[in-house]
Design a binder for these strands. Structure first.
Lengths: 263, 263
DNA sequence: CGAGGTCTTGAAGACGATCAACAAACGTGG
DNA sequence: CCACGTTTGTTGATCGTCTTCAAGACCTCG
């Protein structure tokens, strides 16, 4: 327990700078447009030129660590990442799961000092956006600024649901809720198929997401499978009965803000 | 259990509009200046003229309900309020506790649709800030916009710690952490005395904050008292041993962002 | 003074943690 | 491509934390 496998700092970023390749679209744009389609061409251009530096992280590497004062924010282009906190005795709480199109530490721009870490779960490709550029956006792009603000608020809304889960829901309800949420979010970026999606976590990681042990996670997963609601094999989650799963979880997607509004 | 006492909508706001009185300062300004002292006189003026309408809410009344589409955001001037979610079977999770100077639903400006409710715990005095005014601020006041953004991000940082508590900390650690946090926050607005502050909650409410039952809350409070760390009598919390309390809780105030930085 | 809410205490039981051991999958180097 | 070591998953048993139910004391406010 005192041996803490998490928190492995990545090797120097400068060594692994990549070039944008043609097929690598900016996944933030569809995410924002889903919430407000009135993005102008000029605004899209700003988003596309926000970053001049791409990098990769290997599985388990930290992108940012608690206590850091980042000068960039990290936009996830490919892969899965998590925000997490480690307590003194090694207990870990995962605070968020991030997928393509998520700004994993946009909040470090106003907050300055990281109060938690962000680690790559799978291999990740990311774009680094200098805080100076974000500052410029807040100076000259009020609409974009509101949308960036929005994006951090959606993170917070998800966080609220996680707190409801950890505080009130049973482990079974909570895992069901997590599956509903991930499926809904992955659909936005086209990363979920027909009732199925890839979930490249260990059971221990998923458990640290809801606040239960790896052993219990395993048992609850079997319960959910036994009820014919979801199965998870070979990193692939298959939702067998969406209605039943959502009902068990008490899932209401409102908090994901998937509606198109002027913002 | 199916009888849900929470969620009582307030009577029409229009009936209870008040006037600013001279001694009622804008408590948001010190809160923001604590994080960035470079607020210009012009910016302070904007903050002071943000709202033309004051209102009050009685204890237990809801300021905003889940599903609402507010056209104002609510700045708390006096009293205590909470954000909360009620599940179908009556379980309640409190998501945040708000005190003077807090913008209880600033996030409803970018988010539009409320995914939870905000209720007055004690009698509350609030200022209503039209979303149109906030929109104007985002158009013409980039620095203020960043500070408003910041304020929602501090809420999110607190939320993260609550999730860590609900997910990983024991009930005792978690309540200790809550006391440390509230004391630190109340100090900023001058609402805490020497190792003591008023906490006008019921034990049930405090329990719904950390995700434990009222009965267990009571027992854990006795444990904390037995260890000589904190006592709570007549709505007043007295911290008997700050170091011990903070140590038990694993409290690190970084996440409250109490440092003065250019933002 | 009475009534409803809040606090307190006891007892029983559920949910999830922990410990331990083994099986399966993965990946790395030979 | 196989062998091996390490990580991940699975299962059983025991234990502790917290829940629930119930009843009584206390307190506050009309």
């Amino acid at each position: 327990m005192l041996d803490v496998p998490w928190t492995r700092r990545a090797s120097p970023v400068a060594l692994r700078i990549l070039q944008w390749s043609a097929e690598l679209r900016q996944p933030l744009i569809p995410k924002l447009e889903r919430r407000d389609h009135t993005l102008s061409a000029a605004e899209k251009a700003v988003l596309e030129q926000m970053s001049s530096r791409l990098t990769t992280f290997g599985p388990g590497e930290d992108m940012v660590c608690e206590g850091d004062r980042p000068t960039n924010s990290t936009l996830l282009l490919e892969g899965w990442a998590s925000r997490y906190v480690t307590l003194a005795d090694g207990r870990r709480q995962i605070l968020a799961l991030h997928i393509s199109g998520d700004f994993v530490d946009l909040h470090s721009f106003p907050l300055k000092l990281m109060d938690h870490s962000v680690g790559a779960i799978t291999a990740c490709k990311v774009a680094l956006v200098p805080h100076a550029v974000l500052e410029e956006i807040t100076q000259s792009q009020p609409h974009l600024t509101r949308l960036l603000w929005l994006s951090t608020l959606i993170d917070a809304a998800i966080l609220r649901q996680w707190l409801v889960g950890a505080g009130q829901r049973s482990a079974e309800e909570n895992l069901a809720h997590r599956f509903c949420e991930l499926y809904s979010r992955l659909q936005v970026t086209g990363l979920a198929g027909e009732g199925r999606f890839e979930l490249p976590l260990t059971q221990e990681e998923l458990g640290d997401t809801v606040g239960i042990s790896a052993v219990h996670t395993n048992r609850v997963l079997q319960q959910l499978k036994g009820r014919g609601l979801v199965t998870w094999r070979n990193r692939v989650v298959t939702i067998e009965n969406w209605t039943g799963l959502a009902e068990l979880a008490g899932f209401d997607p409102t908090y994901l803000n998937l509606t198109d509004e002027p913002r």
